[in-house]
Nucleic acid binder design. Structure first.
Length: 851
RNA sequence: GCGGGCGUGGCGGAAUUGGCAGACGCGCCAGACUUAGGAUCUGGUGGGUAACCGUGCAGGUUCAAGUCCUGUCGCCCGCACCA
């Protein structure tokens, strides 16, 4: 006989009895799934969360990063959307007109890979995934206005992604150029700089190669300075994210200096942040792929060797090429340039440590004062010149250097700048160079233009045709969308699948009507997600991407919530789009997201949940077992939102038990119709309970709205529950007060566990839904106390506690303590040096032994 | 290498402004109800017999430090030959 098993049927002997008991308890038992289904159906049918613009009401736009429809919700989603739902429901109960939409970032590679693998069209695969995930999302009971759902892969959406492209194109912000771009051989497409992580594709971790291709770019570099400056207008963003963007933009101020090539009219410009070291230049280095190299070396005895070196560099992977550990290597190319300040003859080299696409691709070598140049010069026996000396050693010689001298100091061997402090010399020499036309002050950014072309099918087609007569021609706006064709072959690797579509390729020029070929690349999916928050404000508009009035009513997003992994990519691209749209007069918002919350990861056994590790906890299984309310409660309770969260099955059980306890205790009040009580007539114990109720209202409100500390909000609710449970057992209890307490508890819990609280609210006789109940405000008078506990310390160590009247000032408190027994006991035989009093809190008696 | 963050019971975490360290939950222990417990309820639970000791470690400031300062170790994240 199986005695202890999970199923009811495992109690063959006593099962019958058990079941009878249960049947009569049916109404009483907490049946999470039934309750959740009931309310979700109601919300859907009554369109509870549908919103429209209402100028009478203050708006609140609460947004969570929309998911890629991979097929199944994972715990990271559950966390993201649970956090967002607390904010949205809370703000709504506070009376805001809350916009809380959801949609799908539904273009992208996995759909196409699935198409190659399973012979399913990407659209089918994607739409069925969306259906499944929509169902899963609904089973979580998130308060979305589903009428505003958008999917970036549908023509009514990507029509306006294409329209956005055209706006950028018309304004000179989209251009095509041939460049050495990042190519992921596994994804068979190019990648933006931001999508290359440690030289690898951020998606599949394949080593990225360099390819020379003609590709479309967005001119995000035009906005570098504003993207940097406006970070200051985002106090509601985590500093960490702002710092990451700052670093990514990488502003650097310096001077571009022109060096004349010996026996030639040519000049070579270099960028430097250290013009104070120009007199110490002993060589100049080019990036191997610098276009001037070929010209300079042509016909010289060095030509062959240089070509060999260039080839070698080309074959290095991007990882190795940019690694700081890579041994510096270079080769002299047989030419010299002239130092504009002192006329020195300087050797020209090419090297692996100079990057072509930063600055000018050429760098002046100052081995005395730059460690990289020092390493290089040592290796190849190039002269080292000291031009800055430390104040304590003004005679510093190059031979003494074990490494480059990079600290502050005074200039030597620098002509009329000798003796000048080098910080001042930076300015002085920069001015001198500018005045004499030998250079100019410039600002450089690390940020590069955004490469948006992708050699893939499942993305928004770039609305461009190439006409033999008219050249590159944009599709007129009234002819959008350029639809994705269906007669496409999906083959692994290779060129853009769109090339295989006859119907797509065969186009006519919108200007001259002659034959034209279409652009076959599609747009990076980050283009689609750079403006979706705007589409939510007017999702059904067929004529425009969004109506300005609607956009201006809802924007900015008041609270944006998502993973920190988007700190640069998505968040910077979105900021860029917003600024372009602002400049073009489409909206009044300059920044998309006023406040940003970056949630931590959900871990299991200390690491990220992943299929390959087999440590995935399925949200659906948890919902099936405990219900959505338990899942949400656990995820919000276990850790503050920004921190990583360790999944713990036992702790989930704990949350389930808590909800069951709430269920029983609140239902026990179902027949309690007492509502009024006389505050003046409350006993001390009653007052303590009333204080707890109102202190909890205050704490939960503060924790949700000011700190996003949902874990402490929930623990406060648990405390209130414990207090009320104990109070309910008392003989002399005030039932109206008890009722007030449980009502408050139900309301406070509702943003976290919306279904069970809605059900309890109804069962305890309320006729309006809890979601339509105004959020609670606490009564100031309830928080007041007559007596406070004063901590008594001696020399900073806790010695005891003392009840004292509330509100005593320092002097009053000191007098009060001096007359206490504990004071007498603690000061016996010692000398009191000082008494520190903190009103209503603490007294510290400083004593020394009597001698 | 540079920049940022974090180190608190067996575990997740709390301590919001320098003022009782360990709220709340998990786990564990004991008890109640029970043929039974995995349900539910009650009590206990940092270490130490105690004085006391305890927030990674070592100093410092202060009447008072998890919180501030200096140094150091460890972990995590971002950037990384950016001239």
């Amino acid at each position: 006989m199986i005695l202890y098993c999970c199923e009811d049927k495992a109690f063959p002997v006593f099962g019958g009895k058990q079941k009878i008991g249960r049947r009569t308890d049916m109404e009483k038992k907490y049946e999470a799934q039934a309750i959740e289904g009931k309310w979700q159906k109601k919300w859907e049918e009554e369109k509870t969360f549908q919103v429209t613009e209402d100028p009478e009401k203050e708006k609140f736009y609460s947004l969570e990063m929309f998911p890629y429809p991979s097929g199944n919700l994972h715990m990271g989603h559950v966390r993201n959307y649970s956090i967002g739902d607390v904010v949205a429901r809370f703000k709504r109960m506070q009376g805001y007109n809350v916009l809380h939409p959801m949609g799908w970032d539904s273009f992208g590679l996995p759909a196409e890979n699935a198409a190659i693998k399973n012979k399913v069209h990407p659209v089918e695969w994607t739409l069925s995934n969306m259906d499944n995930m929509r169902r899963q999302l609904k089973s979580l009971g998130i308060s979305y206005d589903w009428d505003r759902e958008v999917a970036t892969c549908l023509p009514d959406y990507y029509k306006f992604t294409q329209w956005s492209f055209l706006q950028l194109y018309k304004n000179g912000l989209a251009y095509k150029k041939k460049a050495a771009v990042n190519w992921c051989p596994s994804c068979a497409t190019v990648l933006a700089n931001e999508q290359v992580v440690d030289g690898e594709c951020e998606r599949c971790h394949t080593a990225v190669e360099k390819k020379n291709l003609s590709q479309w770019f967005f001119k995000i570099t035009d906005y570098a300075q504003r993207l940097l400056d406006d970070l200051a207008e985002l106090p509601g963003w985590p500093q960490k994210v702002k710092t990451m963007q700052e670093n990514w933009i990488g502003r650097s101020t310096g001077v571009e200096i022109d060096f004349k090539v010996e026996n030639s009219d040519q000049t070579i410009s270099v960028f430097t942040t250290r013009p104070d070291t120009v007199h110490g230049v002993t060589f100049m280095v080019f990036a191997p792929e610098h276009p001037l190299v070929e010209e300079l070396v042509a016909g010289t005895e060095y030509e062959g060797a240089v070509k060999v070196f260039q080839k070698k560099m080309q074959h290095l992977s991007a990882v190795d090429r940019t690694s700081a550990d890579l041994e510096k290597e270079g080769i002299f190319i047989g030419k010299y340039v002239i130092n504009p300040l002192n006329g020195d003859r300087i050797q020209l080299w090419i090297t692996n440590y100079v990057i072509m696409d930063y600055g000018t691709g050429a760098v002046m070598g100052v081995p005395g004062h730059d460690q990289r140049d020092f390493d290089f010069a040592k290796k190849y026996g190039i002269d080292i010149k000291v031009v800055i000396t430390p104040p304590e050693n003004p005679q510093l010689k190059a031979e003494e250097l074990a490494e480059a001298y990079v600290e502050e100091g005074n200039l030597v061997a620098s002509g009329r700048f000798d003796g000048l402090n080098n910080k001042k010399a930076i300015e002085a020499i920069a001015d001198d160079l500018s005045e004499r036309g030998l250079g100019r002050r410039v600002v450089n950014y690390r940020l590069r233009d955004w490469l948006i072309s992708r050699q893939r099918y499942w993305g928004a087609p770039i609305p461009i045709v190439y006409c033999e007569k008219c050249g590159t021609v944009p599709i007129p706006e009234d002819q959008l969308p350029v639809l994705l064709p269906t007669d496409v072959e999906f083959k692994p690797g290779g060129a853009s699948p769109l090339k295989t579509s006859k119907s797509f390729m065969d186009a006519t020029c919108p200007i001259c009507g002659h034959h034209a070929t279409r652009e076959v690349d599609t747009m990076d999916t980050f283009v689609c997600s750079s403006w979706y928050y705007l589409r939510y404000t007017d999702p059904k508009n067929e004529a425009e991407a969004f109506q300005r009035e609607k956009c201006d009513y809802w924007m900015n997003v008041d609270q944006y919530i998502g993973g920190v992994e988007h700190a640069i990519l998505h968040l910077m691209y979105s900021r860029f789009f917003m600024k372009v749209f602002y400049d073009l007069g489409f909206c009044k918002a300059k920044e998309p997201f006023r406040n940003l919350l970056t949630q931590g990861m959900v871990l299991k056994d200390g690491t990220k949940m992943s299929k390959s590790l087999g440590n995935v906890v399925s949200p659906e299984a948890i919902i099936e077992k405990y219900g959505a309310d338990t899942a949400r409660l656990f995820i919000l309770f276990a850790s503050p939102p920004e921190k990583d969260l360790e999944w713990n099955d036992a702790a989930v059980e704990g949350c389930y038990r808590f909800l069951n306890r709430v269920w029983r205790l609140v239902l026990a009040q179902a027949e309690n119709k007492d509502t009024a009580y006389d505050i003046a007539a409350l006993s001390k114990e009653d007052k303590d309970v009333r204080r707890k109720i109102h202190a909890t209202i205050k704490k939960v409100t503060d924790d949700i709205s000011e700190r996003f500390n949902f874990n402490t909000a929930i623990s406060a609710i648990m405390e209130l529950n414990n207090t009320l449970a104990a109070y309910g057992e008392k003989e002399h209890k005030n039932s109206a007060l008890l009722k007030e307490g449980f009502d408050a508890l139900t309301v406070l819990l509702s943003p976290f566990a919306p279904h069970i609280t809605e059900e309890l609210w109804q069962r305890t006789g309320h006729t309006t839904a809890i979601i339509d109940t105004p959020w609670l405000t606490y009564a100031e008078d309830a928080l007041a106390v007559d007596e406070v506990e004063i901590v008594v310390q001696v020399n900073g160590r806790l010695k005891g506690k003392l009840m004292a009247p509330c509100g005593l000032d320092k002097g009053g408190l000191e007098d009060f303590v001096k007359s206490s027994e504990i004071f007498a006991a603690q000061t016996k035989g010692v000398e009191v040096k000082k008494i520190v009093c903190v009103p209503d809190k603490l007294v510290n008696i400083v004593v020394t032994p009597k001698d």
